[in-house]
């Protein structure tokens, strides 16, 4: 099994390192044809405007969306923005696959970027997780079909809906593979 990572721009190598450490082969995705080789896709952090501008060249927005309709997808930070809805900025083309709205850069400039201990719930078990938030987006409103898997205080920061998973923080930067492992287990079951 190979897991693809959108390789337009951003922290795709960090996700690749994490997948390798968990025994899964990553494939950096930049071409339509590569989507046929993978079982699931990660959309990494980076700039959602930069992703949007290039998703009509060798890798098409529509092909990514078609793939996502039938395969697991995990978005972190900018990846969460791509999976969500409600950003009315023409510079960002959201896939609109998950039922929540997001606000980009909702905490402010980089000087407001932070780390915090999160309350994570995976497979019914609660634990703490070191969350790294970089110019992070915020979930503005949540639809009924969306399950919250992690919170910072009371605020939802990780969500699940069907075969989609989204986090406003960066589990690929924390050196803790539990969330990636959870995503991998969902693909194989």
């Amino acid at each position: 099994m190979k897991i693809g990572i959108l390789g337009i721009q951003g922290a795709y190598h960090k996700h690749a390192e994490m997948l390798r450490s968990l025994g899964v082969e990553p494939l950096i995705i930049r071409y339509n044809a590569q989507l046929e080789e993978i079982s699931a896709l990660i959309i990494p952090g980076g700039e959602s405007t930069a992703f949007s501008m290039q998703l009509s060249f060798r890798l098409d927005f529509e092909k990514v969306r078609d793939f996502a309709l039938s395969h697991p997808v995990f978005g972190t930070c900018a990846g969460m923005i791509m999976l969500g809805k409600g950003d009315n900025d023409p510079r960002v083309r959201q896939l609109k696959l998950m039922d929540f709205t997001v606000l980009r850069n909702a905490y402010g400039a980089q000087t407001e970027s932070f780390t915090a201990e999160l309350d994570l719930t995976l497979n019914g078990e609660k634990s703490a997780f070191h969350g790294v938030f970089i110019r992070a987006p915020r979930i503005d409103s949540l639809g009924e079909k969306v399950k919250v898997l992690a919170r910072h205080g009371t605020e939802p920061v990780m969500a699940e809906q069907g075969h989609f998973l989204a986090a406003s923080f960066h589990p690929e930067l924390s050196g803790d593979g539990r969330i990636h492992r959870y995503f991998i287990e969902r693909i194989t079951t």
Partner: peptide, 10 residues
Amino acid sequence: VGLAEMLKGG
């Protein structure tokens, strides 16, 4: 360093 990571490939 996290923000620098996000700028990679750009």
